[in-house]
Each structure stands twice: as C-alpha cells, then as structure tokens.
Design a protein around this nucleic acid. Structure first.
Lengths: 194, 194
DNA sequence: CATCCTCGAAAACGAACGTTCTCTTACGGT
DNA sequence: ACCGTAAGAGAACGTTCGTTTTCGAGGATG
C-alpha cells in the first residue's frame, strides 16, 4: 500500500513534469510549476527527486522508454517487412498530428542543455542510438542493405523538426514517400548485385 | 567615424552573443557572460540592445542571413543543376565538421524558446521557410518535380540534428546518398511521365 | 583652469529560481 | 486519551539573472 502510493506520487510528478518540460522547455519550467501541476508538495517532491536535474533525467528516461515502446507497438501491427518500415512514418504522422506536438523532446533537450549537462547529452544520444538500432532491425528484416538505415534516420529526424517548426504533420508523408523510393532503390541494388 | 565605431561595437556584441548563445543555449547564457566575452560594458550593451530579447532576435536574424548567404556562395561554385543540389549536402558536411558544431541554431532556439517566445518561433519558421524556398529553386532549376523539395528538406534537417547528437559529420554523406537516389528517381518519373 | 559631458567598471536592485525549513494538522500504536 | 511521527502548505533562504544606477575618470570646450 505504501509502495503503491509512492509509485503513484512519482507517476503524478513525472506526468506533470513531462507535460511541462516537453511543452515549454526545461529551463522555462520552475519546480513550483511542477508542484502546482502535480499537486505534490515540494517536500515530498524533493524526497522522491532530490534535485531538478534528477527529475529532468527521470523525465527523459521514461519518455525514451515509452516512445520506443509505442512506436514498436504500432509497427508490430504490420506484417510485411517493407510495410513495417513505412509504418514508422505513419506513426510519426499520427504523433505530429497531436495538438500539442512540439518536436522531439530529446532533440529539444539536447539543444537546450546538451552543452551544459553531460547527463542530458548522454540520454539524448542513447535515445537516438536506440531509435537507429530499431530502424536497423527493420531494415535487416526487409533484406535491405544496412546503408538504407543511414538514409532513413535523417529522414525521420528531419520530419520531426520540420513538422514542429512548420506546425504541420505533412513532413511525415513526404518523408514516407522518400523512404518508399529509397527502399525500392536499395532493393533494386541488391537484385542488380545478385 | 562615430557610426563606424557603433557598428563595430554592435558587431562585437553580436559576435560574442552568437558564440555563447549557439554554443551553450540561450537561457544558459547571462548578459554578464556576453559583457565579459565582448568587452562591452553593460551600459553600452543595453543602449544598443535594450533587452536580452532584442539581442536574441538580432543574433538569430544575423545568423539566418549569413547562413543562407554562405550556403548560396558554396553552391554557386557548381554549375550543373543536379550538382548544385548535391552541393548543399557537401556544404552541410563541412559545417558539421567544425569543431564546435552543435546543431542548427534555429532548431535549438525553437526547442528552447519557441513555446515561450512568439518572436523566436517566428524567426525559426522564417529561416526554415527561406531554406525551403532556396532548395525549391535548386530543384526547379534541375527540372525535377516540386515534390522532391519536400523530400530533401527533412533529409537536410535530419542530417543536422543527427550530426549534432551523434557528434559525427557522416549523416551529411548519408543524406547526400539518399538525395542522389531521390534525384534520380524523380528524374526517372518525369521521363516516364513524358 | 573650471565645467560639462561621456563613458567604462562595477555595485545595486527586484524578480525568479532551486532548495530548505517551519508550522500546523492528522493519524497510529499503546 | 496521549504522544511520536509523518505530511501538507507555504514561507524563507541564498543564489542567479536581467536591468538600472552609481561613481569616478578622462576629454573637449569656454
């Protein structure tokens, strides 16, 4: 019971922190705003997260895990290896269409704090590496050359920032079109080489 | 003479501000750091830029103009329309290779302040629009379908963030490879349709 | 030489932030 | 019923930041 309550409090803090940090940027959000949004008094908040830095890192780590999990769950609804690759961009389109979409939280936090906090820089790098590995697996499963992964990564990343700044989800569609072309070309290369 | 000196002071402030804002993020840099780095006393600094906000906007606008100017100058050294498109990615490679490269200053400032400052969000959007228009002109000159522009934009943007977070300039090469493939495919489409 | 103006260096101010402390209240075990 | 403990609400503290003001030293002009 006690542990459950502690967990619940931690979740409430992280939920509030994520909405605020992602929505307004990390340095623009004071601990008081998180206190107000979560309803958790400062005392308890600091018992669970001894500093703002640890809260920021916890926010990023939880978002990292959930983001990749949600992506994989969406992709897993598709069977064909090439459809699974293209599904990544469909998922991005849905993400970009959320009303409070504001770009990739890891790109944002890296830009804001990457130079000041090694921990934030490391988490952002780890997140992007994990995304890259996930794409690499999809590419390998489609019998496409590994080189395709290197091309899909900037395509997806660029769609995120272009969608954020332009305020439109369309970059996901355009990136998907490009991915389809690259996929076909990569496959043709393999066939030609054989 | 007076005007020349005023210009020089303004340049010195903007030079210091650009290095610091770009290198550490905007909110991590205090006005005192800019005073120290530029050697311009706070009093004069505030005479020229009445607030940190105006200095930030001046930093972004100057960087916007110079960035696109430098890119165009590099591209103009190439003649063939397709080579001019690919040259964009060569230029990105050189940029990513600079020792203190830290991503696109506009993506970074949008992520950090876009939600809090409409002015910053607008400048970032204008910068990306200008880049997009520039690419669109190159695409049109190569007789490629306008659709290609939509594919090249996320490719270039994604190369910027991937290079920044990974700490390697290679994403520019991979993006260039992808661009070459997309260019060929787009051209083949045009030929087929004809 | 006296005077006014300018200008650089740094102190000072008010607000905001991260963090800690205090005070009051409520509860659980004997 | 009583006491020790925990916990919520928010005041308080020390620092930092953006911005303003003060102070003192030239430099040109009568």
């Amino acid at each position: 019971m006690i542990e459950v309550e502690l967990e619940t409090t931690e979740q409430r803090i992280l939920d509030a922190a994520e909405e605020l940090f992602y929505g307004r940027g990390i340095q623009s959000v004071g601990m008081d705003a998180i206190r107000t949004a979560s309803g958790v008094p400062l005392k308890r908040l600091y018992q669970i997260f001894p500093s703002k830095d640890t809260l920021v890192e916890a926010y990023l780590k939880r978002r990292d895990a959930r983001w990749l999990h949600d992506l994989a769950r969406y992709v897993d609804a598709h069977d064909s290896p090439t459809q699974r690759i293209l599904a990544v961009f469909d998922w991005l389109y849905r993400w970009f269409s959320e009303p409070d979409y504001r770009g990739c939280g890891f790109i944002n936090s890296f830009g804001e704090l990457g130079a000041t906090s090694q921990a934030v820089a490391d988490i952002a790098k780890a997140h992007k590496d994990a995304f890259r590995r996930y794409l690499a697996d999809l590419v390998a499963a489609a019998d496409a050359p590994a080189r395709l992964t290197d091309q899909l990564v900037p395509l997806a990343e660029g769609a995120m920032t272009t969608a954020a700044i332009s305020g439109s989800p369309e970059p996901a569609r355009h990136a998907k079109d490009a991915a389809r072309t690259l996929l076909r070309a990569a496959h043709a290369d393999v066939v030609t080489a054989a």
